[in-house]
C-alpha cells in the first residue's frame, strides 16, 4: 500500500514584541498548536526573518495561514518578502471587531482574561480555516 503523503497547515503569527497585540497573537498561535497538534506546523517569524532554511522549507511545503497583529501587517510582509504563498490571512482587529472584544488595560508582558479571550477568538478563527483546508485536501484525494 502506498504511503499517504503528510499534509499539514503552516501557521505564522507576527509574534512581535512592541505592541500588546503581538503578545495576543503569540498566545493564539500556541492555542492553535495545542488544539491541532497533528494538523499544524508552527513557523516562527524569527527563524523566517533569520533565513533559517528549515523554517523557510516548512512554510513553503504547506498551505500558510498568517496572523497579523498591528497595522503594518508584518506577518504578511514576511510571507510576501520570502515568496511564501498565503492560503489565508487573519487580522486581529477584524477578529476583535467581529467578537466585540477589547484588550484595553491588558499588559503586553502577561495577558489577563481579556487578552486571553481575544487570543482564543483568533485561535478559533484560525482553526476553522485550518479545518477547512485539511478537509478540502482530504476530499481532493478521495
Amino acid at each position: 500500500m502506498s504511503e499517504v503523503p503528510e499534509f499539514k497547515v503552516a501557521v505564522l503569527g507576527c509574534s512581535g514584541i512592541g505592541r500588546l497585540v503581538s503578545t495576543v497573537v503569540r498566545q493564539a498561535v500556541y492555542m492553535i498548536a495545542k488544539d491541532r497538534p497533528e494538523e499544524v506546523e508552527v513557523v516562527g517569524a524569527g527563524p523566517l526573518t533569520g533565513n533559517v532554511p528549515e523554517a523557510l522549507e516548512r512554510a513553503r511545503k504547506y498551505p500558510l495561514i498568517v496572523i497579523d497583529g498591528c497595522r503594518p501587517k508584518c506577518a504578511t510582509a514576511i510571507a510576501n518578502g520570502k515568496d511564501l504563498e498565503i492560503a489565508a490571512a487573519i487580522w486581529v482587529a477584524e477578529v476583535a471587531a467581529k467578537h466585540k472584544l477589547s484588550i484595553a488595560g491588558e499588559n503586553r508582558t502577561e495577558l489577563g482574561d481579556k487578552g486571553m479571550a481575544l487570543a482564543r477568538a483568533i485561535a478559533d478563527e484560525a482553526i476553522a480555516k485550518i479545518d477547512l483546508i485539511v478537509a478540502e485536501e482530504a476530499m481532493s484525494t478521495l
Partner: peptide, 28 residues
C-alpha cells in the same frame, strides 16, 4: 520576556528600545 524586564525595569524606557524583528523586516 527578558527583553521586557530589561526594557521596562532594569534599563528603563528612557535608555532602551524594544526592537521588533517582524517590524524591522517590514521596514517600519
Amino acid at each position: 520576556q527578558a527583553c521586557y524586564l530589561a526594557h521596562e525595569q532594569l534599563l528603563g524606557p528612557g535608555r532602551s528600545d524594544l526592537g521588533c524583528a517582524p517590524a524591522l523586516y517590514a521596514d517600519v
